[in-house]
Structures are given as C-alpha cells and as structure tokens.
Amino acid sequence: MKENPLHLFHEPLDLQSETFETTEMGVDGEGIDGGTLFTDSISEAELVSLRNKMFGAITVQKNLAEAKSRKKHLILSYLRVAAVFGLVAVYSYLFWTARQPDFISYETQPGEVARFELPDGTKITLNGNSKLSYANSHWTTFDRKVQMEGEAYFEVAKTSDPQRFHINEGDPFAVEVFGTTFNMKNMQDLFAVGLIEGSVKINLNKEGIGHEEAYFLEPGELAKFDGNSRKLTVEPHKNLDRISAWKEGKLKLKEDDLQEVLAIIGEIYGLEVVLASNELDLKKVTGTLPIGSDFHEMAANLSILFDKQIAYKEHTLTIY
C-alpha cells in the first residue's frame, strides 16, 4: 500500500510552509476516489492546531480592520475637538474685541464754543481750542471719568450711582467731584478750578503716580496750580461768574494781570502772544473783551482795550 504523506508530519503543521493533498469527499464520508479523508489521517492535536491557526489568521485580519476603524474614528474625534477649540478661540477673540471701549472725543476750533451732554446727564460747555474725551462701551455703563485739555464749564449731574465724577484722573492735577458746578482750566502748566456750587476735591499727584496731597474747595473759592513750581494757591473769589463769562463769548476782566489775560487768549486761539515792551509786564487790565470765532475782530478789540498796536504773523500775536 502507498504510504500516506500525512503520516510523515513530525512537527506542528504550518499552513504557509507545508503542502498537503486532499481528496474530494463523497456522500458516505469517504473520498470520491476511495481514498482516506484528511481528517482521518491527522491526529487530534494536529487538528486542533490547524483550526487554531485558521481562526488565528481570521482573527488577525479582523483585528487589523478594527484597528484601522478605531484609528479613523480617533482622527475624526481629534478633528472635531480641534474645530470646537478653534470656534471657541475665534468667538473669545471677537467677544474680547467687542468689549474694548471706544473713545468719544469733543474738540473745538480756536474761538469756538461747544455744548454737549455726557451719558450720565452731565452738561459740558467747552471753550475754544479745547478737547474732552471719555471711554464708551456697549457692554458697560459710563464710568464718569473724562480727560480734558483747555477749558470747560462743568455742570455735573447728581445720580444714584455712588461713583464720583473724575477729571484727568492720575494726572499731576486731577479733580474729583459729585454733583457740582465749576469752571476748570488745564492749559500747559497752568491749572485752575473755580467752584460755583457743590464740592470739589483736588488731587495733586507726584509725577502722575499716586495721590500726594488732597484739597477740598468750597463754593466761591478759586484754586490755581503752577505745574512748574508745583505750587497750589486757594483763595476766595468775589465773582466767579466772571471767570466763566467766556461761555457767552466774552472775557470779563477786573484788575487782572495782563500776562495772564494774554495767556488765556493764546490758549483760546492757539496763538503765541508776545509783549514787545517790558513795561506791559505788570499792567493790570479791566474791561470786557468780546471773543469769538473771528480772530481778526478779537485782535481789533484787544488793540482798543490795551490802546496798543498789534501785529499778527505765523501764529504769533505781538503787542507793541
């Protein structure tokens, strides 16, 4: 009898390296050609090993497919998370940008007088060549803090908000008020506040950082501060309405120093005023000087008031 090749196996069956013969199975369990079935000539252990290898190969393919599927889902999950973080970042930036306040500014030309009202109801009259600005946000209420250069007349509204009204907070000469009326100048190194009614607190800051000294004004008092000498003087004033007469387009003068009057005129019109003669330095001035947007008319009135010749050239006004 011909020896069956399967009887020669001494090592575990390797489907990838070994070859073997099979016969077609008949209905009665024998090969069609009468040969012996493959399973009849293999031991139970070898059959178990063969089955394990077959199912192992199927399992490996299944695991590879599942691994690819998991990797695909993981990548999609990362992309979704990245998209969410991207949207959050964009929204946060837009939200932060929208919350940044805009600055509203009012600015007058030389000789011009402007009137307007702040969000809290405070009324402002702004003198010529002056500027007032404040932060404005759609997300927050008006914080009652303004910056002012030049000269302005304030009628600060009384509100239920305990927040006091601040002008030039943090500057060398700052004002803190609550429901009051006053006139304020902030012209280069000359600062002045004339209190008509209410209460005003003046804060003198050292180099603009931290409060150094604080003074409280009473109605009828005029405070002047020299930025060069850092000297503050507070004295009663008989007629403070005269100080704010510029609101009606005129300067009311009564024994005022000529140098100070010329400084005011220079600030209102954005000019440099020069005295050609030293004899005018100590001169006192009394009278009413009309002021307005017409500079040439003002210069003519100034010449009549001082009884002096006046020349104008390149933003310089010279009095002879």
Rank of each mutant, 00 (worst) to 15 (best):
S160P: 00
H166G: 00
Q163R: 15
T180H: 12
G150K: 08
H138S: 14
A157S: 13
E155V: 05
N168G: 09
Q163W: 00
E151S: 10
K145Y: 00
N168Y: 09
V156M: 05
Y153P: 07
D161W: 05
F178E: 13
H166F: 13
W139F: 15
Y153T: 01
G179F: 08
F182I: 01
K145V: 06
P172C: 02
Q163D: 07
V156G: 06
G170H: 14
F178Y: 12
A152G: 14
E169Q: 15
Y153H: 14
A157C: 09
H138G: 02
E151Y: 08
Q147Y: 04
F178H: 14
D161Q: 02
E169I: 05
Q163S: 12
P162W: 06
Q147R: 08
Q163Y: 00
S160D: 14
P162S: 10
V175C: 03
T141A: 13
N168H: 11
F154M: 08
Q147E: 07
T159V: 12
R164E: 04
F154I: 03
Q147I: 02
F165C: 12
A152V: 13
F178T: 12
T141R: 11
E155I: 04
F173G: 07
F182V: 04
W139V: 08
T159L: 03
F142R: 00
T181R: 12
G179L: 14
H166T: 07
D171K: 15
D161N: 13
G179N: 14
A157R: 09
E149A: 10
Y153Q: 06
F165H: 10
D171S: 15
G170N: 15
T181A: 12
S137P: 01
E155T: 07
V146A: 11
V156P: 12
M148T: 05
K158I: 03
S137Q: 01
A135M: 11
N168L: 12
V175M: 04
V146N: 09
S137I: 02
A157F: 03
W139E: 09
Y134K: 03
S160F: 01
K158N: 10
F142P: 04
G170C: 07
M148D: 00
A135R: 14
F154R: 07
E149G: 02
F182H: 02
I167N: 10
G170A: 15
V146D: 01
D143W: 01
E155R: 06
P162N: 05
G179P: 09
T181I: 14
A157I: 06
A174K: 12
F182Y: 08
W139M: 01
G170L: 06
H166C: 09
T140N: 03
K158H: 09
N136S: 12
D143R: 09
N183M: 13
F178N: 11
E169G: 00
N136C: 01
P172H: 04
E176Q: 15
V177T: 15
K158V: 03
D161H: 06
E176K: 08
V175F: 02
M148W: 00
P172S: 03
F173Y: 15
F154H: 05
N183C: 13
H138W: 02
Y134W: 12
T141C: 00
Y153L: 07
E176M: 12
N183D: 15
T141G: 08
E176Y: 01
E151A: 09
M148Q: 07
F173R: 11
D161R: 02
E155C: 03
M148Y: 01
W139Q: 04
Q147H: 06
